[in-house]
Design a binder for these strands. Structure first.
Lengths: 188, 188
DNA sequence: AAGACCGGAATGAACGTTCATTCCTCTATT
DNA sequence: AATAGAGGAATGAACGTTCATTCCGGTCTT
C-alpha cells in the first residue's frame, strides 16, 4: 500500500493538472481525487512544487521511453521517421492526460532547472534523429527545429482534435497524416 | 484617460496571463502592472472571470481581423493559402502574448459559452477556406481538421520556437516552412 | 473672478474565504 | 507498550472582492 499512495497521488495530480492547470488545482483537490488525507501528500512530497516537478519528470521519462521503445536502429531513415511519428501519436493517445500536462507545463514558471533540462534532453533525441536525415540529404534545407515544429506541432494539435472528439483516429487517417508530415520535411 | 484604464488593465492582464496563466495571476498583480488600484479593476470588470473572458474575446476578434485583412478573394486558392499562413505567422509575431494567451486558454474551464463559440467561429473561417481547396480537388483526401492540425499546429509550435529564441524568423525560413505546409496538404 | 459645492472615478485597507502547509490525534501493527 | 503511518483539524498567509473614503474636474453662487 505504501508505494501505491505515492503513485495514486501522482495520478490524481496528473489528471487535475491536465484539466485545470497547476494553480487551478488545490492540494485538497488532489487529496480527494487520490482518496488520501491532505496531510498524507506531505509525507510523500515536500511541497506542491516538488510534486509537480516530480510528476513532470516522470511523465517526460515515460514519454522518452515510449519513443525509444522498439526504435528500428538498423532500418533506413524513412522507417525511423515513421517509428517516431507513430510513437508520438501512441503516447498522446495512450496517455492523453500526461501528454496534455507535459505540453501545458513545458514553459511554466514553476518548473525547476532539472525538469527543464530533462525535457530538453528528450527533444534533443528527436532533433538528433532529424539531423541524421538531414545529413543523409533526405530532408529539405531547413533547420531541424523547423521539422520539429511541423511534426510535433501537428501531433500536438491533432491530439487536441482527437480529445475533443472532432476527429476519430483511425489507421487510414493516421497514415495519411504521417505521409503529409513526411512530404512536408523530405527533399524534392 | 477613462478608456485608457480599461485598456491598460486588459494589457496588463494579457501579459500576466500569458506568462503565468489565469490562476497563477492575482488581481493585485494585474493592478500593479496596470498601475491602478486593485479596486479600480472592479469599476471596469464585474470580476476576474468576466475580465479574462472579455480579454479572450477581444484577442480572438483581433486575430480574426488580422486573418481576414487583405484576404485575396479574387486570387486562386494557392494565393489564399499563402495569405492565411502568413497572416497567422504575422499575428503570432506581432502579438505574441495574445497568441500564447489564446492558445493556452482555448480549453480552459473558466471560459464561458460565448467565448468558446467566438473561437469556434474563428476556426470555422479557416476550415471553410480549406474546404474550398478540397472541393477544388487541390488538396489531399483528408478531413479539413487534419489540415488545420498541420498548419495551425506547425505555426503554434513555431511561435514557441521563435519566442524562446531557438530560431530566428526570416523571410527565407518562413517561405520554406510555408512551402512545407503546402506540400503537406496539397494533392499529388 | 473666486470660492463653495457636487458627483463620479479612483483608491487601498479590510472582509470573509480558501489556500498550502503543519501538527496532533487516532489507528494498526508488532 | 511502542512505533509508524495516516488523516483531517488547525494555522497563518494570501486570495478575490467590497466599501468607506479621498480625489479631482466642472458648475453654480455671489
Amino acid at each position: 500500500m505504501a508505494e501505491n499512495k505515492h503513485e495514486n497521488i501522482l495520478r490524481a495530480a496528473q489528471k487535475l493538472f491536465a484539466e485545470r492547470g497547476y494553480d487551478g488545482t488545490t492540494v485538497p483537490m488532489i487529496a480527494e481525487e487520490a482518496k488520501v488525507g491532505a496531510g498524507t501528500i506531505y509525507r510523500y512530497f515536500e511541497n506542491k512544487q516538488k510534486l509537480v516537478n516530480e510528476l513532470f519528470r516522470g511523465s517526460v521519462a515515460q514519454f522518452a521511453a515510449t519513443l525509444q521503445a522498439g526504435f528500428p536502429e538498423q532500418k533506413d531513415f524513412r522507417e525511423k521517421f515513421r517509428h517516431v511519428f507513430y510513437q508520438l501519436i501512441r503516447y498522446s493517445r495512450e496517455q492523453p492526460e500526461a501528454f496534455r500536462f507535459i505540453n501545458a507545463t513545458v514553459n511554466a514558471y514553476f518548473l525547476d532547472e532539472q525538469s527543464k533540462s530533462d525535457f530538453e534532453g528528450f527533444m534533443d533525441f528527436i532533433e538528433r534523429h532529424l539531423d541524421e536525415g538531414k545529413e543523409a540529404g533526405l530532408l529539405r534545407d531547413l533547420p531541424s527545429q523547423a521539422f520539429i515544429a511541423i511534426v510535433y506541432g501537428t501531433i500536438f494539435h491533432l491530439s487536441r482534435t482527437f480529445e475533443d472528439g472532432i476527429l476519430e483516429p483511425d489507421d487510414e487517417l493516421l497514415a495519411g497524416i504521417e505521409k503529409s508530415c513526411w512530404d512536408a520535411i523530405s527533399a524534392g
